[in-house]
């Protein structure tokens, strides 16, 4: 029997973008509201998992040609480097700093080095989750 997954495929195409948007929203909102790097990364990973469930691995690899091991490595590296950044300014390792500045067209915003740290966390989470899922499913 051929599985008819037309509905799943069509819905996925649309919904993946919604999930991805949600992931990015969660990532940035983490500073002052629920969200953050870990959750953002996980939501992003779940969007990819949905893609993997719907389509096969080849299609997935064709459309998202990343090596997720490297994504995870870059994430971990960013986490380490943000820590080292503070050392360059003579502060203890992993000191985070923040400032409120006026960005043109956007207005007063607070920017913080935590965002980079969280970016590293998010990338590491996405990379590791997808690496694990891909390597298990490719083992068939």
């Amino acid at each position: 029997m051929k599985i008819n997954d037309l509905i799943l495929r069509s819905v996925t195409k649309l919904i993946v973008f919604i999930i991805l948007t949600l992931a990015i929203y969660l990532f940035f909102s983490g500073h002052n509201a629920p969200g953050g790097g870990f959750i953002g990364g996980l939501v992003l990973a779940s969007a990819i998992v949905l893609l993997l469930l719907t389509y096969d691995i080849e299609t997935f690899k064709y459309s998202i040609p990343f090596d997720f091991k490297i994504v995870a490595a870059i994430g971990s590296l960013i986490v380490l480097l943000t820590g080292m950044g503070a050392v360059l300014f003579g502060k203890p390792f992993l000191t985070q700093s923040f400032a409120t500045i006026n960005i043109p067209f956007i207005g007063l915003r607070e920017i913080s080095t935590v965002t980079f740290f969280e970016l590293g966390v998010a990338l590491a989470v996405v990379g590791v989750v997808i690496t694990i899922i891909l390597s298990i499913s490719e083992d068939v």
Binding site: H31, P34, Q96, T100, S112, E118
Partner: peptide, 9 residues
């Protein structure tokens, strides 16, 4: 730390 979300801070 300039963040309102205590958990993430």
């Amino acid at each position: 730390a300039g963040a309102a979300n205590i958990v993430n801070t």
